[in-house]
């Protein structure tokens, strides 16, 4: 057990120090995320629409959190291939579960800190009144949806094993599709009919739906603005779907990862230039 804890800590230790060494880039990306969130939120302010403003802020914050979670896990193998350290990680006596758990833990920590900074900075632009929101409930939804997104990230993380560049490109396209179909800034009903089925398999759709209810802003303009956020019991359906997605996607992600790792070891694709 002690050995597993040390091995998990190895990935946290590495990623903490890498973040520290690349701090200027972390600041740049966070600055961009703050500006991006603020400009999106100010659209609602300009229209004088409180519900729209809250919906846009929620969408931007949730997307910031979940997309960082997804992309950092998905790119964890890309980074190792760029550095040339992938073979050394794969020949260490570490189970893939411990490896990916360590990577995911740091990413969750990083995403939470980054989102908290964005929220704090947003207060400088907008009078953000969250007193009526069910903040505790939102945190529960975020925790449950994180598991599903980690599973998605694990599946995407294998793409760079096939090809470092193509893998990173495919990850970005996949992330873009998630952004489009999940109704981050709009209700999914406004999507073309042929695209809507995709929104039902994105965990972000359910996370957004639940958070909107918990914020008291409902799903669209047709619904009246609530005076208070809904209790957690009103988002049971979304929580169950998210939990189910997580329960399927994490083992599926690990399984896909193991399959591709085996394939890479048969074909010699672990090499830096492979």
């Amino acid at each position: 057990m002690e050995q597993v804890l040390r091995q998990t800590w190895a990935f946290l230790f590495r990623d903490l120090h890498l973040t520290r060494r690349y701090m200027s880039w972390v600041i740049v990306f966070t600055f961009y995320a703050i500006v991006n969130t603020a400009t999106i939120a100010l659209i609602g302010v300009a229209l004088g629409d409180r519900r729209l403003t809250l919906m846009l802020i929620l969408g931007a914050l949730l997307w910031n959190f979940l997309s960082v979670l997804f992309s950092e896990i998905a790119n964890s193998i890309t980074y190792e291939r760029w550095e040339g350290t992938l073979e050394y990680t794969f020949m260490a006596p570490v189970s893939r579960l411990t490896h990916l758990a360590g990577v995911s833990m740091f990413v969750v920590f990083y995403s939470v800190v980054r989102t908290a900074i964005i929220i704090a900075a947003l207060m400088l632009f907008i009078d953000l009144d969250l007193s009526r929101a069910n903040v505790g409930g939102i945190l529960v939804v975020l925790a449950v949806s994180s598991v599903a997104f980690i599973g998605l990230g694990l599946m995407a993380a294998v793409l760079p094993v096939f090809s470092p560049e193509r893998g990173a490109e495919a990850t970005n396209i996949f992330q873009g599709i998630l952004l489009l179909v999940s109704g981050v800034y709009y209700p999914i009903e406004v999507l073309p009919r042929w695209l809507q089925p995709l929104s039902y398999i994105s965990p972000a759709t359910y996370a957004l739906s639940a958070c909107r209810k918990l914020m008291g802003i409902g799903q669209g303009a047709a619904e009246p603005v609530q005076t208070a956020g809904a209790p957690l019991s009103e988002v049971t359906h979304e929580l169950l779907v998210l939990a189910l997605m997580g329960a399927v996607m994490i083992p599926l992600g690990l399984y896909v990862f193991a399959l591709v790792e085996g394939w890479a070891k048969r074909t010699g694709k672990l090499k830096r230039t492979g």
Binding site: E2, R6, Q7, F13, R14, L18, R21, Y88, A92, P93
Partner: peptide
């Protein structure tokens, strides 16, 4: 490459428990 020798070596040692 951005990490120090110490950080790289400690990471590796922790991987081996």
């Amino acid at each position: 490459k951005k990490l120090s020798a110490r950080e790289n070596l400690l990471y590796s040692a922790l991987l081996y428990g």
